[in-house]
Design a protein around this nucleic acid. Structure first.
Lengths: 216, 216
DNA sequence: ACGCATCATGACCGTAAGTCATAGTGTGGA
DNA sequence: TCCACACTATGACTTACGGTCATGATGCGT
């Protein structure tokens, strides 16, 4: 039915405009200092309406990461199909990943908050699953690059791809946390990227086929 | 003066017993669901007294990490003086570090909360400095181990020790976050340790002198 | 024994998340 | 055209919690 369809669409729009307002506020001031009343004011709806579309402030916060994940997924699909040595693709991916979260500081905080406090986020099973799914979808790229490297003989085949994916992901997240903490803008950014480059290239050296001949 | 000294001591005791009560509660229920009234009840003091010793709930939370850092420092001093190949010492350190935070989940959350939200923690400059200092003191061990490895020729000398220290630290923290998120106890613990072992050993391979002969 | 300084207390305040009774709006049928 | 009904919007209200402060207790030096 056309009217029902329009209804659904309008509902989706309303939800999105709340999300958009919330996103802007959270990015400007962080989770704690943004009140639901503020979001309501910014989105030009009443507070009650917010709770018509979301169950809690935490859900709004989470939802922002989910939609960012989905958007981002489209942008990074290319990496796993990229030409050239897997090691270079991996470096490029890492650079992009770090760049993305340095530019979107608060998104990273959402990710970490979720990782560290998933139980206290009052999310439904569905929302939980969705967040995990979209996140996994994005980091799986690392596995794909690693696998390509193994297939072409560039990387040794004795590594557990999934585990290395997680180790690399962990390293990137850890480095980003470090940056967010030391916090300074500008110059610091370049140092972080240097750290990622150096750290990852050592890592790559460790899985390169020709550097471990004696171990095979 | 004896009476003034006793006063100071009693004050310190009071502070410690509040800290002890708070620690127990935070470890059981996490930051958010522990109220200051609860801490007061557990420590058998009034709420007002709590604020005689601490400026904010966040300060209590932070102080717990600081004292844990200090205690832990005594325990890990040994690592940098440990006999044997630096790579093995590094592995042992990593295992210990991860083990510590897996056992003390909430301490890790405090660390990360501080790293991600240091501005919103309402800490005085002093408290801030103290936390940074004690944390640095503990992770500097990594640098010391790396340096020893370089000095004995086990590791290549072309690496930036400080940067590698941070990369390794980041990796460990990232992996711990991942664990806390996937959360399951028991079996998961062994998988995490396996991930740390594999990740770090690849890393070590990347900085070992004899695996990069062709790069020198 | 008195006065002063320090410490302890819990009623109280302000703020913010979340709820709900009430009001508005648009749609389908008479 | 108008009515009834379902769905949506609203903001005053409730509740909970961090933090404060006026009042009272305690003990030390004189």
């Amino acid at each position: 039915m056309s009217s029902e369809e329009r209804r659904r669409k309008e509902k989706e729009n309303r939800k999105n405009s709340i999300l958009k307002a919330a996103r802007k506020l959270f990015f400007e001031r962080g989770f704690k200092s943004v009140t639901v009343d503020l979001i309501a004011a910014k989105a030009e709806v009443s507070k009650g309406s917010i709770y018509l579309y979301f169950d809690s402030k935490e859900e709004i916060y989470t939802q922002i990461l989910i939609s960012a994940n989905i958007e981002r997924h489209k942008l990074i699909e290319g990496f796993s199909k990229m030409e050239g040595p897997a090691s270079e693709v991996l470096m490029a991916f890492a650079r992009d990943y770090v760049h993305f979260f340095l530019e979107n500081n608060e998104l990273f905080r959402i990710l970490m908050t979720f990782m560290l406090h998933s139980e206290n986020m009052n999310l439904t099973e569905d929302q939980n699953t969705q967040l995990i799914h979209t996140t996994n979808e994005n980091i799986r790229t690392i596995s794909e690059i690693l696998q390509k490297g193994i297939d072409t003989g560039e990387f040794i085949s004795s590594v557990d791809v999934r585990q290395i994916q997680n180790a690399i992901w962990g390293m990137l997240n850890g480095i980003i946390s470090l940056y967010i903490y030391t916090g300074a803008p500008d110059k610091r950014t370049e140092r972080i990227h240097a750290m990622v480059r150096e750290g990852l290239s050592i890592f790559i050296k460790g899985i390169k086929a020709d550097s471990v001949r004696q171990n095979i």
